[in-house]
Amino acid sequence: MEVVILPDAAQIGTVAADAVEALLARKPAAVLGLATGSSPLAIYDELVARCDAGRISFRHARGFTLDEYVGLPAEHPERYRTVIDTVFVSRVDFAPGTVAGPDGLAEDIPAACAEYEAAIAATGGIDLQILGIGTDGHIGFNEPGSSLASRTRIKTLTRQTRIDNARFFGDDVDLVPTHCLTQGLGTIMAARHVVLVALGRSKAEAVHQLVEGPVSAMWPATILQHHPHVTVLLDGGAARRLQLADYYRETYLSKPSWQGI
């Protein structure tokens, strides 16, 4: 696990976009895992700018989103498929139908989850997965207590997650759905490269557990300690609880320029 502490979201966006650009250069038909939420927005803005400038193209790439609320109407602005279209997909040159998400309106939820897993496998798997992290350590919507080997399935959101997400629903927690579909921790672990972004002091404890704590289902993101290629991109607020923060800074400044992330 590589921990990179940077001054702000804009520089985090640049570093993550460099990784995506390098991936697309060597594999134009790359498969990307796309997270919603506020943490990845700087990454998407930077990728849009590079696509507009002609530096990169997504025309041969594919994408899979992490999760989806259950029961939100297709036209709801906070449906994650709508959100990712708005903040990223519609702003670049993905071919029509090449970005998919779990079907939160499916009549047969278990079948829809199995089909989603099969669709990811059929592409050869995700090359680079973008992640955020919740204040309780969840990734995707794998809440504390999630199986470390889990696959795409329905989950009940914790009260804390619904409170955290209420800002997208007019600050009314009762409007936040109770259930979601999410890629499982086992699904996320199958990605070849994971890029996790955390911003702000509210994420500091979750980041501390992720990087320096024991692997535990109580902090689901800690399973990433077992992944062979994880990059954790942090601002100073999110890094404030790290005991080895100075070492992580020194390591990043000293790494070979050719190595990338």
Rank of each mutant, 00 (worst) to 15 (best):
E117Y: 00
D127E: 04
P40L: 10
G145E: 08
L24Q: 05
A114E: 14
G71P: 00
L224K: 12
A122E: 02
E143P: 03
A204D: 09
A22M: 07
S39W: 01
A198P: 11
V15F: 02
I12A: 08
A19N: 07
I223V: 15
H229V: 05
K203M: 04
C51E: 15
Q259H: 14
V99Q: 00
R62C: 01
K155A: 12
L233S: 11
I163D: 09
T86M: 08
N165M: 03
Y116N: 02
Y69G: 05
T152K: 04
R240W: 06
H60V: 02
R62V: 01
R159C: 03
D235P: 08
E205Q: 14
R241V: 04
L234D: 07
S147P: 08
P177Y: 10
I261G: 14
E78L: 06
G137I: 12
D136C: 13
T161P: 05
P96T: 00
K203G: 02
S150C: 13
V15H: 10
V195Y: 06
I163N: 07
L244E: 12
L32T: 12
T182A: 06
D103K: 01
L6W: 12
F169P: 06
L47Q: 14
V194T: 12
V20K: 03
V31Q: 08
T65D: 14
I84G: 03
I43F: 10
H179G: 00
L66A: 06
A206M: 11
C51F: 05
F64A: 09
P77Q: 13
P102T: 03
Q209R: 15
L224S: 11
S38G: 12
A42V: 09
Y252A: 15
A149Q: 10
D127N: 10
A217I: 05
G54L: 12
A106Y: 01
A16H: 08
A118T: 13
L253N: 11
I223G: 01
A119C: 03
E143L: 02
L244N: 14
I84R: 03
L105Y: 02
G213K: 04
Y69W: 06
S202W: 07
T158M: 10
G104I: 04
T135P: 00
A35P: 14
G184V: 11
A53K: 04
A16V: 15
V230C: 09
R50A: 07
G132W: 01
V232H: 09
E143I: 03
T187G: 11
A217S: 15
D235V: 12
V215A: 08
G213W: 00
G71K: 13
D93N: 02
V31F: 10
H138I: 03
L105S: 09
H193R: 15
A9K: 08
A112V: 01
I130H: 06
T86Q: 15
S39K: 07
E75S: 14
N165W: 05
A206L: 00
R151S: 04
K203T: 08
C180K: 01
T158N: 05
R249I: 14
G186I: 08
T251A: 15
A221L: 09
G170K: 05
Y252T: 13
T98S: 04
E143V: 04
T161Q: 05
T123R: 02
W258V: 12
M1P: 07
I163A: 10
S90Q: 14
A217W: 04
R167A: 04
